[in-house]
Design a protein around this nucleic acid. Structure first.
Lengths: 216, 216
DNA sequence: GGGTTCTGTGAAGTTTTATTCACAGGGGAA
DNA sequence: TTCCCCTGTGAATAAAACTTCACAGAACCC
């Protein structure tokens, strides 16, 4: 069940939002203050947080920052009575997912909630598109060496590649070359020379980037 | 056998370098002009190129650029009679691996060659250090989803994670969590909450970076 | 206490990935 | 032509990754 937290110091508005969301099939947790919201956050795990911008004590923007420390990609919708460009920009810069102004219509609220949840779902599942092929292809050290070797030398013939990597069995090389070709990292020119595609070059760059990150 | 190309318009110097390198156990190809060097490059595959900076016709720097187009990471040592900071800097900016000045001692040349080849070997093999674990770990879409989910929610308990990812079998989750823990991407705190390590956060960042690259 | 959920282990089974083997056409050299 | 090396395919086998199953202690609720 999708869990939502509503953080607003206005008791009536909070209750009515909770009711609307509850009827729409969400599990709702309420918080009247920022500190309370942080406590809830530490215990429960929410799919979305609705946050009032202006509150006594811990303000909405600061609270948003604190939430980001804990959960960097938690979807958060900011709510405020004072529609201003500055506020909206500040909220979005802190990583708010959306921004709605009071007074709002019930269907407007539900639409925003639905949209943001949808985006979050999309975010987490699109990870398995091409990325899957690319990463499983790169997870093999021999294939990475093949790519690196071809990048270094520019273009290589089949047996040269085998010898440089000290592979006695050429069919093994063939197996991995086929995978690299299918992933779109390299291709053969008219002289049967193997060379990197632009995707291959880019991906190797990414691998180096990752290596640098791992180095420290 | 390690193959080296020597490109220099000075016949005597070229021959003597070739002799020294040949005696040291390298297979040496000679070129007296830039155009000739490019022809050799298209046919053979070298492990290292020694390049004279000042040559009639196609100059050393321009030739270096052409070589880089073909073979972006080919090790190249620049050689010149005119030692100047500007030349050295320009060569290194174009991606020369090293820079030596004429006249040079035989052992100095061999030392430079050895060092550069060693670096190239190191470059291509260090790829299989941690990177192997990291990439094979990331190659599984379920594990990526686990990381993304934890990053979004900040910290999660075991069963919450199972439910969010709609895994009926919790032992499956356990299997993948163990792998993620061993790779150092996440750890458990005293309350058994799973949360990302700094490495985990960084690596997720890299994955997003890669995804963006793939998007276009 | 008794039942239920949470968290975990280890082994057996399945699927995927990687390696090895047997074979074969094309092209160049002797 | 014969021989040999290059390039490749498909099937059989081995290894690794993943899933499922059986079980069990700890914590929590009634």
């Amino acid at each position: 069940m999708t869990e939502i937290m509503v953080v607003d110091d206005d008791h009536d508005l909070r209750e009515s939002m909770a009711e609307v969301l509850g009827k729409a099939g969400f599990a709702v947790t309420q918080a009247s203050r920022g500190e309370e919201a942080l406590e809830h956050l530490a215990k429960n795990n929410f799919d979305l947080i609705l946050l009032d911008l202006v509150m006594p004590g811990l303000g909405g923007l600061e609270l948003l920052g604190r939430i980001r420390d804990k959960a960097p990609r938690m979807p958060v919708i900011m709510i405020t009575a004072f529609a201003s460009v500055e506020n909206a920009v500040a909220a979005m810069r802190q990583g708010a997912s959306d921004y709605i102004t009071k007074p709002f219509r019930i269907d407007g609220l539900l639409a925003a909630v639905g949209r943001v949840l949808e985006e979050a779902r999309f975010e987490s599942c699109r990870t398995s598109l091409d990325l899957d092929t690319v990463l499983s292809c790169l997870s093999n050290p021999l294939r990475r060496e093949i790519l690196a070797q071809i990048e270094q030398k520019g273009a290589l013939r089949f047996m040269d590649l085998c010898r440089k990597l000290e592979l006695e069995d050429h069919t093994k090389m063939n197996f991995h070359l086929k995978i690299l070709k299918e992933a779109g990292f390299l291709h053969q020119d008219e002289n049967k020379l193997y060379l990197l595609t632009s995707l291959g070059t880019q991906v190797l760059g990414c691998v180096r980037f990752l290596m640098k990150k791992l180095a420290d």
